[in-house]
Design a protein around this nucleic acid. Structure first.
Lengths: 198, 198, 198, 198
DNA sequence: ACGTAAGCGAGACGGTACGTCGCGTCTTACC
DNA sequence: GGTAAGACGCGACGTACCGTCTCGCTTACGT
């Protein structure tokens, strides 16, 4: 685990990667993700363009690495991992929303029309994964005539992401806790009520 | 108004535009929307590149024109615009789903990871618009402590779009009518229950 | 022969190619052939770099085209093509030397240490070709014990080129006619005397 | 002067330089001198690129060092430096040709179209130097109307180099002794006859 | 023989040229 | 007047090589 002399431990390497991350985010906020060129990033980060390619194959790889670090941070910070009681916003969701609020400018762009389609999808999948974990295996019955669980999960996670985008676009009108509460209500309603059969 | 010598009535013009539409769609299915270049489109359509620019400023304008024609078609074909009874799939929704099924290859790509973010958003807004029309002004109470109607609308339309994407990705496992029914159930549940429940 | 609408007849094309030729020559004089980059050429010629590649694959192709035009010019201007009498400098040789004098700066560099090895070789081959044409088939006997004709031709053409380089390096101390005379003397001596057997 | 702790006596240093020499030569034979990069050399020599720069500033310096060692070897091995009789191939010339034969692959490339212009010139100057030494000061009369001695020397040395290139290109069809004899004949003829004849 | 200074390997980095590609504008000629 | 053909300027791309640098390891040398 504690691998020595890794190239990622090199001070210069860490400095370079960090500056590229910052440049990507700041430029994305300024002009939208797709409009940002690798040239832009390098100039803003004061890094030679060839150096960029020594670390990443394109800007998507840079974004991926950044997102990975975020997810790792979110997952590791959960610590207490309380058994999420239904009808109560899970700590993970609140933490996610707090993180989004902390980088609202960035996420507002990334999830908006000048964003990157796979980015929102990745967040949706994260939400879906958490939903699956928060539920018993067979919490959602799959009776004929009812929407299949897979479709329900997709709908709920999409609804959540939609609510998040709305929240960001409206400039965070309510607290993360309130958002988490509403989101949980909606989710539980859909999953529970449908299962109990209209 | 009925200008005879209209530029768009010219046979050559109509032929050119049509071939460009076809080329855009076929190439998008093949390699994803962003990967399609104007060069590609022109070669596939056997149209000179300069000619493309005489009609559209970029491929987004070409897509927009195509989408406009679709929406016009959808809205005009509804004819009777029956007062959609809740709990029953509205005719407009079924028609939309049938259209998607008819061009599933194209929409699957456009709404997927190689698609175009504003494209899905446009469909979501169309759904949201229909939802607003299908509901009385104050159908959704906005009591404090409850999710605001705007957020609910956003969530429901996002959920619908999510369900549609799921349906396309799974290769249309159920009929448009079934999808419309499920979608309506979910929507009504969210809007109604929230307002009365809790 | 008189092919119409050839792309080389395009005024813009002729202008572009001409400016690239001039840039190549002037820059070669300034800093030596190998040091000249395609960027240099394009900036000096006020031509976009991509345009360069539309015409030539590299600077060697540009040089080749230039040299081809020179050789064509030299061969076509001979007009009278008098039956070159031995012991008298052939008109072609004088014309070649006059051309070299007219572009002495360029050839001095190209044939010097900062030049291009294949360039001198091409001139040497041109001289050798003229020598072959100026001689009857069996003018040079190939008796055993004597240098083979092929080797003699190589030596004489090399000697001629060497003399030319000397002439250019010394800043043209004598007239082209004088040079041609001396060169012819040396050539005839080598070919004739050797054959008559020491 | 006889510094013991010389940097060049270090075993590691000698090993490194030797491997770089070998790599340069083998790679030059394979792909031509200009195409060989310092990276190539270092990889082939299994030497780190930074180490190369600790010894040479570029590949030309490496080549120079190699050539210096060759010339030193040639000049030292002549030993008896007999007063070369005209009409008889001098021992130095034979030794040079034997050396060329021993490394024919390398010289064939270096003197050919993928070679290095200054390399042939250096050999030519070596030949010219030997010619000057082999002749009395005023062996060549400089009467008006006759080619100046400087030009003659240049021509003869160029002719000799040309003959050598021919010999290498033809894959050494005759022995070094035969080549030396022919070369001497040609040289003497040019120098002697011109002065007395005409 | 052994401690140490030097040679060396590894590789990050800034720089610069390369050759390619797509874009959008323009001109010319055809129909 | 719509179109084909295509030259051109522009600018981003990804790659290659250059020369410099810092950091440790290891190794041959000199006392």
């Amino acid at each position: 685990m504690a691998q020595n002399s890794n190239h990622k431990d090199d001070l210069r390497v860490r400095r370079t990667r960090k500056m590229l991350h910052i440049a990507l985010i700041e430029l994305t906020i300024q002009k939208g993700f797709e409009s940002v060129t690798i040239r832009d990033i390098c100039e803003h980060a004061m890094v030679n363009r060839a150096t960029f390619y020594r670390h990443y194959i394109d800007k998507y790889a840079l974004l991926d690495e950044y997102m990975d670090s975020i997810y790792e941070l979110l997952d590791h910070s959960q610590g207490e991992a309380s058994p999420d009681r239904p009808d109560e916003p899970p700590a993970g969701l609140v933490r996610l929303l707090e993180h989004l609020r902390g980088h609202a400018d960035f996420y507002r762009v990334m999830l908006g029309p000048k964003g990157y389609p796979q980015f929102g999808e990745r967040i949706r999948q994260y939400v879906e994964k958490r939903l699956r974990h928060a539920l018993p295996e067979n919490a959602i019955p799959s009776a004929p005539g009812l929407p299949p669980p897979e479709m329900l999960l997709r709908s709920i996670s999409s609804a959540s992401l939609g609510a998040i985008v709305w929240w960001l676009e409206k400039d965070l009108p309510v607290s993360p806790e309130q958002m988490a509460l509403w989101g949980t209500q909606i989710s539980c309603l859909l999953m529970g009520q449908i299962s109990s059969g209209q």
